[in-house]
């Protein structure tokens, strides 16, 4: 302890009423407001840790921009008109585009929505409006487990259920797999949103003699519309990026195909096929497809935000 840092407040010594004395013979009034060497060490540690946790944050933010930056820089050269309008060239040939994959992805997501959304939204309505007690808790628990299911497991399930039984990879199988992935996401977010609708709105409608089911459809769901859209888009964005389950179900396709019983192209699968092939041109196309995929996902969320915002403006 360096003497000049010690500020003596008072020379008095305190009478000892407690058992035993302190280790140092120093006056208990030695009041160190600026701190001794050990205190400066503690301050230094504190500052160092602040710098370290700040660096962790910088890393998290930087890694996002690094990955997005690579996708942009390496993907842009691949983009031309043909990329969006033509189908992929045969193995090893230069040129062509990913139009079937873009359309295939959109088509698969649309069909997955048609299969999964009614089930998910109805379940959310049940949980929020009707379920009390154990059955509701059981359903919520199962939804959590479904959400935690590795997507490859969903892929294996649909593969054994549909692909093996029908003897063919198909767009339908892919859409079912995506639907199973979307259902827990939509059900969870929509239930959370419906729970936020104030009860007074329900009561106001019920007091007018409107039956419960009409109240839910005409009052509760419209009030929660923006939240429901957000939840659905979240699920669509997630499904749009899924690769493993699609690989096992739709397989991918070099040609335009809208027959649900045939293999169908999808953007993530196309990226995979391009990336693992040994051709530089295909690698460029993989980056280009990645750029398109990220842009689609980003656009989807932006459009929703915009739609949700303008709807709120109308309401208010």
């Amino acid at each position: 302890m360096r003497e000049e840092q010690v500020v003596e407040i008072s020379g008095e010594t305190r009478p000892r009423t407690f058992a035993g004395d302190r280790t140092t013979g120093k006056s208990r009034h030695a009041l160190i407001l600026q701190g001794d060497t050990r205190f400066r060490f503690r301050k230094a540690i504190s500052g160092l840790m602040a710098a370290i946790v700040a660096a962790c944050t910088v890393f998290g933010v930087a890694i996002l921009w690094i990955i997005l930056g690579y996708v942009l820089v390496r993907g842009l050269p691949a983009l031309d008109l043909a990329f969006f309008t033509e189908r992929p060239m045969p193995y090893g040939e230069v040129g062509g585009g990913v139009a079937p994959a873009i359309l295939g992805s959109l088509y698969l997501i649309a069909v997955a929505c048609a299969i999964g959304l009614p089930l998910a939204v109805m379940t959310a309505i049940y949980l929020s409006e009707y379920a009390h007690g154990r059955f509701g808790d059981a359903v919520r628990f199962v939804i959590d487990l479904l959400a935690g299911l590795p997507s490859i497991v969903v892929g294996v399930f649909v593969w054994t259920l549909i692909v093996i039984n029908t003897g063919s990879f198909s767009g339908l199988a892919g859409a079912v797999a995506l639907a199973i992935i979307m259902i827990p996401i939509v059900a969870r977010t929509v239930e959370a949103i419906l729970n936020l609708v104030p009860n007074s709105m329900r009561e106001a409608s019920l007091a007018l003699g409107v039956p419960t089911w009409k109240t839910i459809i005409r009052v509760v769901l419209p009030a929660a519309k923006s939240g429901i859209i957000t939840g659905v888009v979240l699920a669509m964005a997630r499904a749009g990026g899924e690769t493993a389950p699609l690989l096992m179900t739709t397989l991918g396709n070099q040609f335009f195909n809208f027959d649900l019983m045939q293999p169908m192209a999808a953007l993530p699968v196309q990226i995979y096929n391009y990336a693992v092939a040994p051709y530089a041109d295909w690698h460029t196309k993989a980056w280009g497809s990645a750029l398109v995929l990220i842009t689609l996902i980003g656009l989807l969320s932006l459009l929703t935000r915009w739609a949700v915002r303008s709807q709120k403006l109308v309401e208010s």
């Binding site: 964005a237 995979y272 990220i294 996902i297």
Partner: peptide, 24 residues
């Protein structure tokens, strides 16, 4: 803004991580 940015990492599809991992 910071937590939103870090959480955006979760929105990047797995295949794009794979692509980046293979080549970079």
């Amino acid at each position: 803004p910071v937590s939103f940015t870090v959480e955006l990492l979760a929105a990047i599809p797995s295949i794009i991580y794979g692509l980046w991992a293979v080549f970079i």
